[in-house]
Structure formats: C-alpha cells, structure tokens
Write a protein that binds this DNA or RNA. Structure first.
Lengths: 155, 155
DNA sequence: TTTTGTGCAAATTGTTTGCAACACG
DNA sequence: CGTGTTGCAAACAATTTGCACAAAA
C-alpha cells in the first residue's frame, strides 16, 4: 500500500509542525486520492467536505507548500491552467497531455528511462519524472489532424 | 537561414489580416531572437523599442495568438511563471529546466526521438517536442544534492 | 468607408502575503 | 502560555475581454 494520511501527519509532527483540522483533512485527501490530478482548488473542496468546516484556499496552499518542502509532494503545471499535485511516492508515471482535447494519459516511468539515462549521462541533468509532462496530440486528435492535412496541401 | 519577419508578415497578409506597426514590430522581435526564451512581456518591451511607440500588452497577446493559430508560434510554460514563446520553425530543441537554480539547457530533439517514437507506437500519442520541458536538476545542483545526502542519513 | 486592430481599463484566474484572532502542544 | 496556523482581505502576476476610437485595405 501507499502512503497513508498518518504518514504525512507524522512527518509534520516530526518537523514539530502542528496538526490542525485543516492539515489533517488535506493530508487525508492527498493520501486517499491516488493517481488523480488535483488542483489546489480540488483539494480545498474535498478537504472541506471531509473536515466539515471551512478551509481557506490560502491554508491549502500553505499546507501544500509545507508538504512539498518536506519532500512528500510535488506539483506540475500540466497545461496552461492551475498546477496539479501528487504525492511524491505515487509519481511513478508520466503524463501525456493532449493539447487539443486536454485529456491526459499516464504512462509508466520505465518507458522514459532510456532517454532520461541518456540525458543524464550526456548533460549531467537528472530529470525528475514527476515534474514534467509530454504535450502533444492523443490518438483520436492526431488521427483527425491527419485527415485534415490531406485536403490542405502545405500551409 | 530561418524565418524572417517578412515571412510572418506575409503569412498574416495571406490570411487577410492587417499589417500594423505593432504586428510588424512583434514579428520583427520574434524573427530576430532565435533560440531565446521570451515571455510575452519581454516581447512587448523589445517590440516597443523597435516600434518606438507604445504597444499594449494585450496587443502583444493578441498578435501572439494569431501567429500561434497560424502555426508559426508555440508557447510553453517552462517553470511556474509566465509562458515563453518560440517560432515553431526554430523549435528543434528541448528544454531541460533545473528546478533548483532555474537555469535551462537545450538539447537537440533527436536525443528524445527514441522515446517519443515508443510513446507514439504504444499509445498513439504524438508528442510535440516544442511543447514541453524536462524538469530536474542540472549537473551542479545535482552534485550538490549528492553531497548533502552524504551527511544527512535519511530525513 | 468598411472592417479589423489598438489602447485602455476592468475582469479573471491562480497564487501569495500581511495581520489579528485562534488553537495546538 | 507561547508560537505556529488560520481566515480574511488585499496584493500580485499572467492573461483575457469589452468597448470606443484609430487605422489598414
């Protein structure tokens, strides 16, 4: 099993940070939403439901910051909108984001290993899987795009 | 040689769009700033100097939109800040952005070809090189990071 | 002269910050 | 109790939009 809310909570405790209702709820949301792409607003909404008290957006950002500093969380800006958050532990996949329809697919990180290794050996650059997205066209969109270019000879 | 400002201008003309001072200046900036990562604000500032008249930020965004629609331009959100713009033609490279120091390195797209091919064949996903960035740690930062973890046994 | 494009100001969205009241430890 | 946290409101940054006026074609 993956990280549980308590793991995050005790991480906070270990850093002598305080355990509050808001934080508990946020950790809960993060721990129970594996593999989802949640924005800070999504997280706030779910945390509110769980905590059954108002939780301010700024509190959410602050808590996410803390967890990110502790290394338990990462966030990425997939498209052009809000960033999405992931528990670090669960980021064993990579995102393929379709720039036409916005859908996103996940692929296991292993797929990318070869290039990442090349990049590291050649440029000394250590890529962090979680932290980027491949943008392009998903299958249906790319198919549609091909059809179009058939009757549209060269720009 | 690469795309010249006139190429962009005539593309506009061909779409029966109007050639204005602002657009001319913006095209000029784009065409003469190969390989640079310019934000919309950078572009506005340079365009103003060239045109020697005030050009509004919204005008810049609108013009960039037009050029992007015509397929001459792309933009990416590298880090968490403003997006950066590139003439499509010149985007034969990929960005490695260091999340610690913010520096960014470019690598030729060929480096990535193998994975991109795999991704396409396996998921039908056509990645667009220009449109994403690899985030990670550059050599110096990653070296520093290793040192740290030597005398810092497990969190 | 008829569109189309521009500047300006105001709206939006995502995120950050200052500060007084509050609650965890 | 004392310091870390919260909510709220206000500040910010990036981008978008409405509209009357200016300027291409």
């Amino acid at each position: 099993m993956h990280l549980a809310a308590e793991d995050l909570i005790s991480a906070l405790r270990q850093s002598s940070l305080r355990i509050t209702k808001a934080r508990r709820a946020i950790c809960d949301v993060l721990a129970t939403s594996h593999e989802e792409h949640m924005s800070a607003v999504d997280i706030r909404d779910r945390a509110r439901k769980r905590a059954k008290v108002g939780i301010d957006q700024s509190t959410v950002y602050r808590t996410l910051d803390v967890l990110e500093d502790l290394g338990y969380l990462h966030h990425v800006h997939l498209g052009h909108g809000a960033g999405v958050y992931h528990l670090t532990e669960e980021s064993d996949h990579q995102h393929l984001v379709c720039e036409r329809c916005g859908r996103s697919v996940e692929i296991p990180l292993d797929e990318l290993e070869p290039v990442l290794a090349t990049v590291t050996s050649r440029y000394g650059f250590v890529a962090q899987g979680v932290h980027f997205a491949l943008v392009g066209l998903c299958e249906p969109c790319s198919a549609r795009s091909n059809e179009e270019s058939m009757n549209d000879p060269g720009e």
